[in-house]
Measured scan of single mutants.
Amino acid sequence: GETKIIYHLDGQETPYLVKLPLPAERVTLADFKGVLQRPSYKFFFKSMDDDFGVVKEEISDDNAKLPCFNGRVVSWLVSA
């Protein structure tokens, strides 16, 4: 499998796309960081919350699996 991750960088209009050679349910924050090489950023991901619906959730645990929608991951990188 392959996972497409779209990421928005510090408010830039056009998002970036990276592809990881892993199925979406196995991709972790560490996998994503390894491709990006951007150490001083906070990582937020499109996520579903039972109370609020669609939210941007910050993930900082490198072992955390990334939230996935239709085989895609959507993220926002914010300068720390």
Rank of each mutant, 00 (worst) to 15 (best):
G1M: 12
G1V: 09
G1W: 09
G1C: 11
E2L: 08
E2I: 11
E2P: 06
E2N: 13
T3A: 03
T3Q: 00
I5L: 03
I5E: 02
I5T: 07
I6S: 07
I6N: 07
I6V: 10
Y7F: 09
Y7K: 02
Y7V: 08
L9N: 01
L9S: 08
L9K: 05
L9H: 00
L9P: 03
D10K: 02
D10G: 03
D10F: 03
D10S: 03
D10H: 05
D10W: 01
D10Q: 06
G11C: 08
Q12W: 05
Q12C: 14
Q12D: 15
Q12V: 12
Q12L: 09
E13G: 08
E13Y: 06
P15L: 04
P15N: 06
P15K: 08
P15T: 12
P15F: 01
Y16F: 11
Y16D: 03
Y16L: 13
Y16H: 15
L17R: 08
L17E: 15
L17D: 03
L17Y: 15
L17N: 06
V18E: 03
V18G: 05
V18H: 09
V18P: 06
K19R: 11
K19G: 04
K19M: 13
K19H: 12
K19P: 02
K19Y: 10
K19A: 10
L20S: 04
L20P: 00
L20D: 03
P21E: 09
P21R: 05
P21M: 07
L22W: 05
L22K: 12
L22M: 12
L22A: 05
L22T: 05
L22E: 04
P23N: 01
P23M: 00
P23E: 08
A24F: 06
A24W: 09
A24I: 07
A24C: 11
A24R: 06
A24T: 06
A24Q: 12
E25S: 11
E25K: 07
E25P: 00
E25W: 07
E25R: 05
R26H: 10
R26M: 09
V27E: 04
V27R: 01
V27L: 08
V27A: 07
V27P: 04
T28S: 02
T28H: 07
L29F: 00
L29T: 05
L29G: 04
L29V: 03
A30Q: 07
A30N: 07
A30H: 03
A30V: 02
A30M: 07
A30K: 13
A30P: 05
D31W: 04
D31K: 09
D31V: 07
F32Q: 01
F32L: 08
F32V: 01
K33H: 04
K33R: 03
K33N: 11
K33T: 04
G34S: 14
G34F: 06
G34A: 14
G34R: 14
G34K: 14
V35D: 01
V35G: 01
V35Q: 09
V35K: 08
L36Q: 03
L36H: 00
Q37L: 10
Q37Y: 11
Q37D: 15
R38C: 14
R38F: 10
R38A: 13
R38M: 13
R38Y: 10
R38W: 11
R38G: 12
P39C: 09
P39G: 13
P39K: 14
P39N: 13
P39L: 06
P39V: 11
P39H: 13
S40P: 09
S40Q: 13
S40N: 14
S40V: 14
S40F: 10
S40R: 09
S40T: 13
Y41P: 06
Y41F: 13
Y41D: 03
K42M: 04
K42T: 08
K42Y: 00
K42Q: 12
K42R: 14
F43L: 03
F43Q: 00
F43G: 02
F43A: 05
F43S: 07
F45Y: 03
F45V: 02
F45G: 02
F45P: 05
K46N: 12
K46S: 10
K46T: 08
K46W: 09
K46F: 06
K46P: 07
K46Y: 08
S47E: 02
S47A: 12
S47K: 15
S47G: 08
M48S: 15
M48P: 13
M48T: 15
M48L: 12
D49R: 14
D49S: 15
D50T: 12
D50E: 10
D50R: 12
D50S: 13
D51T: 14
D51N: 15
D51C: 10
F52R: 15
F52A: 15
F52I: 13
G53N: 15
G53F: 08
G53T: 13
G53P: 10
G53C: 14
V54F: 14
V54W: 14
V54T: 10
V54G: 11
V54R: 05
V55C: 14
V55N: 11
K56R: 13
K56Q: 09
K56P: 06
E57H: 11
E57T: 15
E57Q: 15
E57S: 10
E57D: 01
E57G: 04
E57R: 15
E57M: 15
E58N: 06
E58D: 00
E58L: 06
E58A: 04
I59Y: 04
I59G: 03
I59L: 04
I59T: 01
I59W: 03
S60I: 08
S60A: 10
S60Q: 11
S60M: 10
S60T: 12
S60Y: 08
D61H: 03
D62F: 06
D62I: 02
D62E: 07
D62Y: 05
A64C: 08
A64G: 04
A64Q: 12
A64H: 10
K65Q: 14
K65W: 01
K65M: 09
K65H: 13
L66Q: 06
L66P: 05
L66V: 01
L66R: 03
P67Y: 05
P67E: 07
P67R: 06
C68S: 13
C68G: 03
C68K: 00
F69C: 10
F69Q: 07
F69D: 08
N70L: 02
N70D: 13
N70M: 08
N70H: 10
G71S: 06
G71N: 08
R72C: 15
R72I: 15
R72F: 15
R72Q: 15
V73H: 05
V73E: 02
V73G: 03
V73C: 08
V74K: 00
V74Q: 02
V74G: 03
V74M: 10
S75I: 07
S75N: 01
S75K: 00
W76Y: 07
L77Y: 00
L77E: 00
L77M: 08
L77V: 12
V78Q: 06
V78N: 05
V78G: 05
V78E: 12
S79F: 06
S79Y: 01
S79N: 11
S79C: 09
S79M: 05
S79K: 10
